[in-house]
Design a protein around this nucleic acid. Sequence first.
DNA 1: AGCAGGTGCTTGATTCGCTCAAGGGAACAT
DNA 2: ATGTTCCCTTGAGCGAATCAAGCACCTGCT
Lengths: 141, 141
Amino acid sequence: MAVPAVPASGATDVEQAMFEFVDAYNQAWEAAASEHGLSTAHACVLGRVETRRSMGELAEELRCDASNITQIVARLEARELVHREPNPEDRRSRQIVRTPSGDDLYGEFEESFEFPRAAASNLTVAERKQFAALLHKALRR
Amino acid sequence: MAVPAVPASGATDVEQAMFEFVDAYNQAWEAAASEHGLSTAHACVLGRVETRRSMGELAEELRCDASNITQIVARLEARELVHREPNPEDRRSRQIVRTPSGDDLYGEFEESFEFPRAAASNLTVAERKQFAALLHKALRR
DNA sequence: AGCAGGTGCTTGATTCGCTCAAGGGAACAT
DNA sequence: ATGTTCCCTTGAGCGAATCAAGCACCTGCT
């Protein structure tokens, strides 16, 4: 159910454009993940463990329950994409790292997720700068 | 697991900015839905049935299996947010419509989904026009 | 040292979202 | 009317998510 929200009846042009852009981004991201046999959850986790991370850190960054991470990491580990190491400083904690084959798979995934590169390449250098500035400014609260 | 992709190591500024914007949009959308007791799937469907739609149309628009829609509509119907009517022109088909209380709930949801309005209001009128144009241009393929 | 309480993770139960396979009933084409 | 196609539903099964409970370990206090 990739489609977030149909734009409100009274939506302005910009709002409509934001929606379309976000939807396209989401769709492209999901498609790239599934092309590599990754669920969105797996791709999220795999992306974060490029540098060593604990379960708790993952749970916090991905805004979900720790037990959810346990489950996902277990599946990634079963596929040998990820490795769970003891933390010598705190024996309750586990450090998650990508295995070489996890690195490879994630690399391929990133490469096939062309959307951001393609979007940027549709713009001139000056426009890219502008676009980045506007994206940031729109976020400011 | 709202967080789509951590930006690639070699990501440029624009790409990073796109990611942040999309992430914020997604997060805001999910939060607004959950504030109103809606899952993302329910919010998607509820949003589309402002105008009468068949199950098949919903499945196509939301890019998922028809049986998934059956299930979701059943839950929405149990909450009386939606109503399933026979289609006089084709008795195999069902027409889905929001009930008045479905209209109310969706209205409140849309109101609480401030993100696009807030984003627009961070920009001047000229910037909004520019932003919309860039969003579109970035999507062109 | 010893205990109380907090932390980090796992397990189990449960729900929802999603897909696939199978099937029923209705439309349609010949 | 008969066979095919179409729309939807049902059932089975898995992944994702949450919550409640529990275990192992750390920390702070006395």
